[in-house]
Amino acid sequence: MQLNILGSNYEFTNELSSIDLVLNKIVENLDGTDFYLSHLLIDGVELFSDFDSYIAEYIEYIQEIRVEVLTIKEFLNEIFSSAEEYLLRALPEVEILTNEFYQNSSGHTWEKLQLLLEGLQWLNQMILTVDQEKLKPDNWNQYIEYSAKLAVELKNLEEGIINQDNILIADIIQYEINPLMCNLKDEITSTIDAIGVRKNIT
């Protein structure tokens, strides 16, 4: 099978022992460049994760693995677009979640809170990832400020969760976390309008 990356071609045998060699070659070629892995195109099939599992399953038949890359600007645009999409979906749900904690929380309410926490941790991780990059938006200081505030409120929220204090949880979400999420959404929208491209615009 052939690996095509950044205009270079490499030949590998169609054996399980080649999987690590292929994945290591991809890392080796991208390391130190301004390109980021977008996805693999394996005989025309787009793959965004679980590369080793897929390659292992079809190892006997694979002819070509093409590595699709993103420039740093495209990479940032992907990250910010994903964050904007998440916040647009999450904000209406946050309002519903707050009302449930004020009224009468159920097991389902606590499950939704867990999903919110995972989403907020993902947003913080996104900010940390971009902070490592050379290219950052002009409004980057705002992101750092919101990230720091979010970390504080997540700590406060943890206290409410430990004590199962529904009113404290609802207050923190409504008066602290929800406004932060709104502000972050506005910053992200501003960033995409300034340096990015919004997909699926009709």
Rank of each mutant, 00 (worst) to 15 (best):
G44H: 08
I144Q: 13
A56T: 04
K155H: 15
E153Y: 13
S49M: 06
V67Y: 12
L123K: 08
L113N: 11
R89A: 04
E145V: 06
N104M: 03
S53V: 02
I127F: 10
N99C: 01
E46G: 04
T98L: 04
S105Y: 08
L128Y: 03
L157F: 12
K149R: 08
A90L: 04
D50T: 06
E100Q: 11
L116V: 15
L117G: 10
N104Y: 01
L117N: 11
E95P: 00
L97N: 00
E133S: 09
I59L: 02
Q142D: 15
I42N: 05
E64N: 15
K112A: 15
L150Q: 03
L87V: 00
L117E: 07
W140H: 07
E64D: 12
N104D: 05
Y86D: 02
N139P: 08
H108C: 09
E153I: 12
F101E: 00
E95Q: 07
I55C: 06
N141I: 11
V69P: 11
Q132K: 15
W140L: 03
V152F: 14
E84N: 07
E111S: 10
Q114Y: 12
A83M: 10
E78K: 03
E78N: 04
E118L: 14
E153M: 13
I62H: 02
E57S: 04
F48Y: 15
P137K: 10
D52N: 13
E100M: 10
E64L: 14
E46T: 07
N77K: 07
L76T: 01
Y86M: 09
F80I: 02
K149Y: 07
E158N: 15
Q103P: 00
K134A: 05
T129E: 09
Q103C: 00
Y58A: 04
K134R: 07
L128S: 08
T129V: 06
E100W: 10
E133V: 11
S49L: 07
L88Y: 00
I65W: 05
G44R: 07
D50N: 14
L88S: 00
N124M: 11
M126F: 09
E145W: 04
F48S: 11
V130T: 02
I59D: 01
V45I: 14
W110C: 01
L115Q: 13
Y54D: 03
P92W: 02
Q114E: 13
